Structure formats: C-alpha cells, structure tokens
Simulated assay, not measured.
Amino acid sequence: MATNTRAVPDAGEEAEQNSTEGRLSSVTAAIRVLKTFSEEEPEIGISTLAKRLKLAKSTAHRLATTLLAEGLLEQNVENGRYRLGIELFALGALVRRRLDVSAQALPFLHELRERTDETVHLAILDTTSIIYLFNLESNQAIRMRSYIGVRKPAFCTCEGRVLLAHSAPDVVGRVIKEGLVARTLKTDTSSAALLKMLEQVRIEGFSVDDEESETGMRSIAAPVRDMSGQVVAAISMGGPTQRLTKKSLRGFTPLVLNAAEGISTRLGYRRP
C-alpha cells in the first residue's frame, strides 16, 4: 500500500526560511512607512506611525531609525517628527529624468523614422547594459526589430558606446571586468579596442555598430544631454546591411545628430 510521505525541512532550512521571510516582512513594513506620508501630512511622529500601521511602537521606531540612516527619512529636531528624506528626491529625479527624456524625444524619433524609414531607438544605460525605453520600427518588410525593456550589452552596441563614452571611468571598468562576450563574429572583445572606440566616440560625437551586436544589422547612435550637459540617453537609427550600406549610413549621420541635439535642447541643454 502506498504511503503519503512529506519531506520535513531540517532545522537549518527552517531557520533560513524564517530569516528570509523576516527580512521581506521588514522591507514591506519599511515601504508602508514611506507611503504613510502625504502632502497633507508631511511630518509624522512615531506614535502616530505605529498606530497607523498597526505596529508596536518599538518596531516603528526601529524602521524609522533604519530609514533615517539611509537618508530616506529625516527627523525634525524641534518636534522629533519624521518626514521624507532627500534621498527619495534624488531617486525620484532619476525616474523623472527618464520620463522627461521619453516625452521630449517622441516627436524627434517620429521625424527621424519618417526621414530614414529605418527603425529608431531611445536607450539608457543600466549598469553594464542598455535598456530600450522607446522604439519605432521601420515600415519596410526587412527591418531591425526591437522591444521596449530589452537589454543588450553596452560595449558592443552603438547606443551603449555613446553612453559609456560619457560615463565615469569606474562604469567602463565594471563593463570590462564583467567580461566582453562576443555576440557575433564581428564583435571585438578587446578591452583596449573598446577604450579606443570610446575615445573616438567622444571626438566624433556618434557611434556606429557594424554587425557587432546583431548579424546583418548596422546602426548609428548619438548622445542626448540634459540641462547640465550630462549624457542621459542615446538615440539610434538602424537597419539591415543590404539596404543600410556604410555609405548610406554616413549619409544619415547628420539626421541622427540633429535629432539628438533637438531632444537635448528640449531638455534645456545649450551648447557651450
């Protein structure tokens, strides 16, 4: 007769599970603390926080102290109440910057797609990869395909090289340390070659991907700058090699540069 048996976790596994659940519970509680503040109630005391979140006063104080140490909360020294910290403003500014770039870029991306009839992208750098925030595909049957939110290695894409060329040395160092893995037969995985290419991008103001990230596809990218002059995104235009020859790609370069400059101007950038 078959017996119904169930594996019983040992003491170590149970302790680890309880520890993980405890950490997740603390994260959830911390998020709830932050969401308690509002425009109508910008400062809240520990007693009110504890009552509002149905937590012990000691637990609420521990959460507030941790968030205070990380800059996510501040404490009013006059009344002891807590308010949202400046670190949240900095994080929100990063999100706002992305939203602003996407909104301001749209008309220029549409115009670039119409004038080239090739696929256009808007991308940002995220650690060692690029993420596509927006794309408009070509109307032609054979075209470069892409999807919003897709990641690609920064070192071998034209968008990534534009962004890396204007990043801090430690960002480029992280890319090299992670490893330059070939995506096609034409991908150059030499760190020395990458550094040389990034210098060339800084001088010329654009970057070309000649089948280095995707076989049979060529593309060109240019930087988008914000009001401070910092490069916050890259726009690109690309298509199949049989249609987008090296000569035609060079012909489209001014269009890509003008579109990038137009978006930068809309973001408040003024050329020195």
Rank of each mutant, 00 (worst) to 15 (best):
E211T: 12
I148T: 11
D209H: 06
R243T: 10
E211I: 10
A233E: 11
P223H: 01
V181K: 14
P153A: 00
R151P: 14
P240Y: 01
R174G: 02
K246R: 12
S191T: 12
E178H: 12
L244M: 01
L195G: 07
I220E: 06
I203D: 13
D188L: 06
G173V: 05
A182F: 14
C158G: 08
L180Y: 07
L195D: 06
I176F: 03
M237K: 12
A193K: 13
R151Q: 14
S191N: 11
A233S: 05
Q242M: 11
H166T: 05
T157E: 01
V172Y: 03
D170A: 07
S146G: 14
S228Q: 02
R202P: 09
P240H: 01
T245V: 07
I235S: 01
E178D: 13
L244T: 01
C158Q: 13
D209I: 07
Q200F: 06
A192P: 15
L198Q: 06
A182N: 12
L185P: 15
A222V: 12
K186D: 09
C156K: 11
G238P: 12
T157Q: 00
T245W: 07
L244E: 03
L198S: 11
R161Q: 05
T245S: 05
M237A: 13
T215S: 10
H166E: 08
K246M: 14
G173I: 06
E159H: 14
E212M: 04
F206W: 11
L244K: 00
G160F: 12
D226E: 03
I235Y: 02
R202N: 05
S213Q: 12
E159T: 15
S167F: 12
A233V: 07
A233Q: 04
H166F: 04
S219G: 11
G179A: 08
G149T: 10
V162Y: 03
P169H: 09
F206A: 04
S228C: 02
K246A: 13
Q242N: 09
G160T: 06
I235V: 04
G179Q: 08
R145C: 08
A192D: 15
S213I: 13
T215C: 08
M197F: 09
E178A: 04
R218G: 03
S167G: 04
L164Q: 00
G173R: 02
A221D: 02
G239S: 04
Q230L: 06
A233C: 09
G205S: 09
R174A: 02
M227G: 13
D188N: 12
P240L: 01
E199Q: 10
R161D: 00
A168T: 15
K246E: 14
S146H: 15
L244R: 01
Q230C: 10
S207G: 03
G239C: 08
V181S: 11
M237Y: 10
G173T: 07
R225Y: 08
V232K: 03
E212V: 01
G149I: 14
E199T: 06
E204C: 13
P223K: 01
I220W: 07
R174H: 08
